[in-house]
Design a protein around this nucleic acid. Structure first.
Length: 469
RNA sequence: GGCGCUGUACCCAAGUGGCUUAAGGGGAAGGUCUGCAAAACCUUUAUUCGUCGGUUCGAAUCCGACCGGCGCCUCCA
């Protein structure tokens, strides 16, 4: 297995520090608003990587932080005249709901910044003791000139950064590139006691403190969006490696942006759609397929046309799954067992996923599998149920458990015994009578009218089936 | 200006030296099946991979130049 490591700018063979354990840290959301569909891309691709590592037999400890102390939360709390804790709790709940709707597997731990203030203070103190950090009147800054490797992740150096410095002029900093570890309290802001007086932590310090607390000194994988490379991840390295003399992260993995109209989707540009809105019209599986069809590291343009194309693809996958479930229920033990090399598909799937998580290829292999399976089903009448069990296992292992682009549990729920179902059944049996009497006009009208209500009928040899769109 | 990503069919998108005269999805056209639909299957839709040179027996893939898109360098997944 190999991944593109932002640090070395090349693909590297994946060898965790302490196999079969893998420590995996992902920069999570700042909980001041609903997250948008671009954020969802990172969460979903990280989720797929995590699930694949588990498929490969690793024990993954997956940590995603929640930033609950931050300028934007404070701003919102002032605007809405609510305590900042209320804002962050509300959006933390929303975050968990949305992530669940997207079928993202829960992290092992979701540490919150405000629950780790002591750890951050301890880390800042270590940096101060080493004279890497300095205190100016209750504000503590990181002195970037004290860390020789500063810029090693983002490929920058101090001279270039200073030359093009667009950094906020701040008289109290020694160097404009120095960044805040601890911010002196201002009136009305949340604050904590510290050796430097009342204040709150800077943004970067939480990830350094929480990752080492939950995952140890050197973590295997640290992932996040491309925009975090600099300054956030660069500063995390400076903090963690400055304080302790050990490598902070072995593999840095970064996700490409979701663009809209060829421009980065972001809160500050205002050109975003929340995941929550999209989920009202599209299934998690369609959304995940949309993302999985592109390499995680590159840009991806968002449009509803593209999402609809993915939705069609998703239907194709579910259609086969529905046939499989129907056949499994029939439980035919006497039919033939067609030639079908399931192992080939497993091998190919693993081969491409091993190569830097090539989900577009993996999806292509699944579609190949589906086409060939459908062909066999069309060619033979009397197929042994074991064939369908094999098909189901493959799709469940790959499309469902790893990519999350299929859900067998969504099928077969049609016997919900609701009144609606019973009414539909009455219409269907009426329609069958009409068809026998060759009254196709009325039979078609029933089908069209139901279709307008989102109920799609399908006539097969075995009878009429329906699904709710 | 520095750093990084990127330019493949109507759209999206894999492929980074011979297995590929280029996967997969969507769209479009024709066909099989069906009372008709739907689903499914079959066929067609790039002799060509931004442009121009070069290396090589052989290049979408390596090298050079040029043209274009995006991002980071300031909060952002």
């Amino acid at each position: 297995m190999q991944f593109y490591n932002t640090f070395s700018k090349s693909k590297e063979v994946f060898e965790p520090v302490n196999p079969p354990n893998v420590t995996f840290y992902v920069c999570g959301p700042t909980i001041y608003d609903y997250f948008h569909i671009g954020n969802a891309r990172s969460f979903i691709m990280a989720d797929i990587l995590r699930r694949y590592l588990e498929f490969k037999g690793y024990h993954v400890k997956y940590v995603m932080n929640l930033t609950d102390v931050d300028d934007r939360i404070i701003k919102k709390s002032i605007d809405e005249k609510k305590p900042s804790g209320e804002i962050s709790n509300f959006y933390a709940e929303a975050f968990f709901e949305d992530i669940k709707s997207l079928k993202v597997k829960p992290a092992t731990v979701y540490p919150k910044a405000t629950q780790h203030i002591d750890d951050m203070i301890k880390l800042i103190q270590e940096l101060e003791d080493k004279e890497i950090a300095y205190n100016v009147d209750g504000n503590v800054f990181y002195n970037v000139s004290k860390f020789n490797d500063y810029g090693k992740l983002s490929g920058k150096n101090l001279e270039e950064l200073s030359a093009g410095a667009r950094v906020e002029i701040n008289e109290i900093k020694k160097n404009p590139l120095d960044f805040a570890l601890w911010k002196k309290a201002k009136e009305g802001e949340p604050s904590w006691n510290s050796p430097w007086g009342k204040g709150r932590p800077g943004w970067h310090i939480e990830c350094s403190a929480m990752s080492s607390k939950h995952l140890g000194d050197t973590i295997d994988i640290h992932a996040g969006g491309n925009d975090l490379i600099f300054p956030h991840h660069e500063n995390e390295i400076a903090q963690s490696e400055g304080a302790h003399n050990h490598k902070f992260v072995k593999y840095w993995i970064h996700f490409g942006f979701l663009n809209i109209n060829e421009e980065k989707m972001s809160k500050s540009l205002g050109n975003f759609l929340t995941a929550r809105e999209i989920l009202k019209k599209y299934t998690a599986e369609s959304i995940r397929l949309f993302f999985a069809q592109t390499y995680y590291g590159g840009p991806l343009n968002f449009s509803f046309d593209l999402l609809k194309a993915a939705e069609k693809g998703s239907e194709k996958i579910f259609n086969l799954a529905a046939i499989i479930e129907t056949e499994i229920k029939k439980d035919n033990n006497v039919g033939i067992s067609p030639e079908f090399d399931i192992k080939y598909y497993y091998d190919e799937f693993e081969k491409v996923m091993d190569d830097d998580l090539n989900t577009p290829q993996a999806v292509a292999i699944i579609f190949d599998f589906i086409r060939n399976a459908n062909k066999v089903i069309a060619d033979y009448d009397n197929i042994n149920v074991s064939f369908f069990h094999d098909l189901k296992k493959f799709l469940k292992d790959t499309a469902q458990s790893i990519l999350g682009i299929l859900d067998f549990e969504k099928l077969g729920l049609k016997e919900s015994s609701g009144l609606d179902d019973k009414l539909i059944e009455i219409l269907l049996s009426l329609r069958i009578k009409l068809k026998k009497e060759k009254n196709f006009f009325l039979a078609d009208q029933i089908r069209d009218d139901l279709n307008k209500l989102g109920i799609v009928l399908k006539d097969t040899k075995e009878g009429t089936t329906y699904k709710i769109r």
